[in-house]
Design a protein around this nucleic acid. Sequence first.
DNA 1: AAACTAACGGACGCACCCGTCCGTTTCGCT
DNA 2: AGCGAAACGGACGGGTGCGTCCGTTAGTTT
Lengths: 192, 192
Amino acid sequence: MPGRLSQTVRSDARYNREHILDAAREVFAADGLNAPMREVARRAGVGPATLYRHFPTKEILATEAFAGQMRTCETIVDDGLANPDPWQGFCSVIERICELHARDRGFTAAFTSAFPHAVDFTERRERTLKSVAKLARKAKRSGHLRQDFVLDDLILVLMANSGIHASSPATRAAASRRFAELVIRAFRTSPL
Amino acid sequence: MPGRLSQTVRSDARYNREHILDAAREVFAADGLNAPMREVARRAGVGPATLYRHFPTKEILATEAFAGQMRTCETIVDDGLANPDPWQGFCSVIERICELHARDRGFTAAFTSAFPHAVDFTERRERTLKSVAKLARKAKRSGHLRQDFVLDDLILVLMANSGIHASSPATRAAASRRFAELVIRAFRTSPL
DNA sequence: AAACTAACGGACGCACCCGTCCGTTTCGCT
DNA sequence: AGCGAAACGGACGGGTGCGTCCGTTAGTTT
């Protein structure tokens, strides 16, 4: 008995917390980070106060809501590194990351202009970027990636990709796919 | 004397109108179309009511403020068409338009997601795009531009370019230049 | 110079969003 | 079942931006 300190989390609290996170994911994906907190609360079926009690600020909410996406990002890069052909791995990273960012309007903003206070988020981000750099080195050695590729180019691509604000998700996805294709072509060694 | 209908435009009105337009150009260039109308009024040294009397809506103000940029756009494309080497002309269009859009934060938004009600603005836009299409055809015939380039690719590039929201204008310009370079490389015929 | 009127701008109402307070409900434990 | 605390949510205050009203200013005309 004396061992447990405050383990008893009330069931409704836990329930609401999950629902808020689900709602946040939906709303942020559809409308971006500018979506009002109220909208998240509404969709979760809770009052604003409850939302703010669980997540004191929008930044914290977004960080937690995007944890999954962040993991996906890491997986994508790890998969790319695991690919026996570094250039193919590099291409798959570009394609899949562009697709991920196109599907979720809020995530790009979170990833590129990263929150100042989300510690473990930026930490993961840095680690992922390091892996990309490693993959890029391999791809350069394989002779398929331009020698003058720099990591900032990837950020550039992500920011640019975020500029694609097509109305329907379908259009957005198509545009993003086309964009990834262009970018890959731009990064491939030219035979000059 | 009876010929003139309402020629008498008061001098202060004319003066203010010009100042408002100047202010709008500065503010929209620096902060984008999201900049508050008040800021424009403040910088022009007039009250909000005066601003709204001259330009009943933000859309109208932006349209008039960007008329010059729109003309510049046309000039850029015309120059490109006049270039004896269509591919060089095409490249110059990409470079200069990206630069133009990077320098002015608001113009891209105005150009890509064009206002629904700005008639002669969209008209000019269409005409300019037609010229680009013509230039693209020539560049394709010259053998340097990919056969599968479509006009939507240019819109895609502009939208993507608008995604580059670097803090300082200098950084933004540099990023945009790099971006133009990547894009040109992507559009060049590959020797596969 | 006087008066007529166009133009001005401070102040207003409205809508939206953020984050918080506090009275009420509901869970969990005994 | 009853009680204490944790959690809830409606309502509030603060801030910002848009577009408008109306009393005041100042250009123009005779």
